[in-house]
């Protein structure tokens, strides 16, 4: 509740500070328009027709089911990796041996391209929801795992000694010393993993499913409909930006106010 109020109160100032970001986005649109003027609408439709197509898709109601299917898969995979990655990362961080052993494994996971996982997932799960959900999970898991692992590994011995000297009970040890520290590592990892999930799910859908934004992109590609392609891309990126900058970033600012530099 306190968090919600702080979020609402900070929003106007935060949005105001976004003018710079909006200006640079408009520069991008200008470049986009320039490219479409030079190469013609088949290679690159101009922004107005792309957004017009998107508006048409939304008004006709065609956009929502696809977006909902994509969001459902992305969020399922993301939620799984969030729970498993946080929990296992914390556990591994508690033991020196476990963290030493898990590091190379996680590096292997991180280094394997998502497309390779997607091929495997298609063999295992076929055209079901399992394919994109699994691919998202595998792509997002190591990011969160590493965040949780580092959070536990870097717990400060000095603060622990201080907490002992002031005879903090076990519960306070957790809520006042361990948790805030670990969350400060976990939260950025959660945000990074969300971006990864959203990108990977579209890729997985493109190759493996019959519905969702990825499938719609595949269809527009086969119709050589670049305006629709750009419309779908704009929808996916816009949604990600909205979630990240309107919801997660303000929460992060509020939660990590103690990290702010300067005054």
């Amino acid at each position: 509740m306190r968090l919600l109020r702080a979020w609402a109160a900070g929003l106007p100032a935060y949005l105001w500070s976004g003018w710079g970001a909006i200006a640079s986005l408009l520069l991008l649109f200008a470049a986009w328009e320039a490219v479409s003027l030079i190469y013609g609408p088949l290679v690159m439709p101009d922004p107005r027709s792309a957004f017009g197509t998107l508006l048409g898709l939304i008004e006709s109601g065609a956009a929502w089911p696809e977006l909902a299917a994509t969001a459902r898969r992305a969020m399922s995979g993301y939620a799984l990796s969030l729970v498993a990655g946080s929990f296992l990362g914390l556990l591994a961080g508690l033991s020196m041996t476990a963290s030493m052993m898990s590091r190379p494994l996680v590096t292997v996971l991180m280094g394997t391209p998502p497309i390779a996982w997607l091929v495997l997932a298609m063999l295992w799960f076929g055209a079901s929801d399992g394919t994109p959900v699994f691919t998202v999970f595998v792509a997002a898991f190591p990011v969160i795992f590493i965040g949780a692992l580092q959070g536990t590994r870097t717990l400060d011995n000095q603060l622990r000694g201080m907490a002992e000297a002031f005879r903090l009970p076990r519960r306070m040890m957790f809520t006042d010393v361990y948790l805030p520290h670990v969350v400060s590592y976990l939260f950025p990892a959660w945000i990074a993993a969300l971006g990864t999930s959203w990108k990977v799910v579209v890729m997985a859908e493109l190759l493996a499913t019959q519905d969702g934004v990825g499938a719609a992109l595949a269809a527009s590609r086969s119709h050589l409909d670049t305006a629709a392609t750009m419309a779908w891309i704009a929808a996916v990126v816009g949604l990600l930006l909205a979630v990240e900058y309107l919801v997660l970033e303000p929460i992060k600012r509020e939660v990590e106010r103690w990290r702010e530099q300067g005054r």
């Binding site: 000095q158 000694g161 010393v177």
Partner: peptide, 9 residues
């Protein structure tokens, strides 16, 4: 302690 050892959060 020798250092302040305050909880940064």
């Amino acid at each position: 302690f020798q250092q302040p050892r305050l909880l940064p959060w």
